[in-house]
Computed example of a mutant assay.
Amino acid sequence: MKKGITALFLGMIFVLGACGNADDTNTSENLEAGEEVYRNNCAACHGADLSGNGAPELTDIGSKYSQEQIEDIVQEGIGSMPPQTQVEGADLEELASWLSEQ
């Protein structure tokens, strides 16, 4: 009896594991490059959903600033936000491009 229950349990684990969603949009492989940079560098202060989380919200940042202006803000800081020196090069361009579309 115990062998049957164990086999059933292991079979269920196998079947349920095979039903996993490989297209999960929350994995970093499926994020746009700029969104991934945002999540890794900006989301802690500005919120994963751009809602602010204690810092200014960025939900409509693209209607306020151009991509170039966003790059300048990230590099130089603005208000109480210090310069984000760890974001540079292609990451900075991808981040600013993604944010300018928000």
Rank of each mutant, 00 (worst) to 15 (best):
M1V: 09
K2G: 14
K3H: 07
G4V: 04
I5Q: 09
I5F: 01
F9M: 13
I13V: 14
L16Y: 14
G17V: 03
A18S: 12
A18Y: 08
G20C: 07
N21Q: 04
A22Q: 14
A22C: 07
A22K: 12
D23F: 15
D24G: 04
T25H: 05
T27A: 10
S28R: 13
E32M: 06
E32R: 03
A33W: 00
G34L: 04
E35I: 13
E35N: 13
V37T: 12
Y38S: 05
Y38L: 06
Y38T: 07
Y38Q: 02
R39T: 06
R39E: 09
N40H: 08
N41G: 00
C42K: 09
A43N: 05
A43L: 06
H46Y: 13
G47C: 03
A48D: 13
A48S: 12
L50D: 08
L50Y: 09
G54T: 07
G54A: 05
G54D: 10
A55N: 09
A55T: 01
P56G: 00
E57D: 15
L58T: 07
T59N: 02
T59F: 07
T59D: 01
K64F: 12
K64C: 00
Q67P: 01
E68G: 00
Q69M: 06
Q69N: 13
Q69T: 05
I70N: 09
I73C: 09
I73W: 01
V74C: 08
Q75N: 10
G77M: 14
G77K: 10
I78Q: 15
I78M: 15
G79Q: 08
G79T: 00
S80H: 04
S80N: 14
P82R: 09
P82N: 15
P83T: 13
P83G: 06
P83S: 12
Q86R: 11
E94L: 11
L95T: 01
L95Y: 11
W98H: 04
W98R: 02
W98Q: 02
S100Y: 04
E101A: 10
